[in-house]
């Protein structure tokens, strides 16, 4: 993992954003937080090395975000996290190009492995 790898976290739940931020920073990543898919897409400076996004959010959901970002950054690794890990949602996320699909709550090692795979190398 490169110490400068930037991970964008998109989740409407403030507590989840804060917790993920702390965890990913403890793993050595730089973190950018977004409360909605729209705010992530609107931020022209957001050029993360990996996107971690929730599925169910007001407005644009995580699956729609995946499709929107695919045109702009087709090679951007996306990790989907959700409290509703139904098979159909998982299949949709993977079909839309998600690298990994994690069910909340997840263990730190699980997301650490996913991120390591997404941005290369591991701490």
């Amino acid at each position: 993992m490169c110490s400068s790898s930037v991970i964008a976290i998109v989740d409407d739940d403030e507590a989840i954003r804060a917790a993920l931020s702390s965890l990913l920073r403890s793993l050595g990543y730089e973190v950018r937080l977004f409360a909605s898919a729209e705010s992530f897409l609107a931020d022209s400076r957001a050029s993360p090395d990996c996107l971690v996004t929730d599925i169910q959010m007001p407005g644009m959901n995580g699956l729609q975000l995946q499709l929107a970002i695919r045109n702009r950054r087709p090679r951007l690794p996306v990790i989907v996290i959700t409290a509703f890990p139904e098979d159909a949602v998982r299949e949709q996320a993977i079909a839309a190009g998600a690298l990994h699909f994690l069910s909340k709550p997840f263990e730190a090692d699980a997301i650490a492995r996913c991120l390591s795979e997404a941005v290369g190398g591991a701490r």
Binding site: A15, I16, A19, S22, R25, K104, P105, A108
Partner: peptide, 25 residues
């Protein structure tokens, strides 16, 4: 049940993630 599960899982996810983060710090 799905609605309750979602409501409970969100703070639970934050608990687990924060606790894991604390351990790593």
């Amino acid at each position: 049940t799905a609605s309750i599960a979602h409501e409970v899982k969100s703070p639970l996810a934050a608990v687990v993630t924060n606790a894991e983060a604390a351990l790593r710090w």
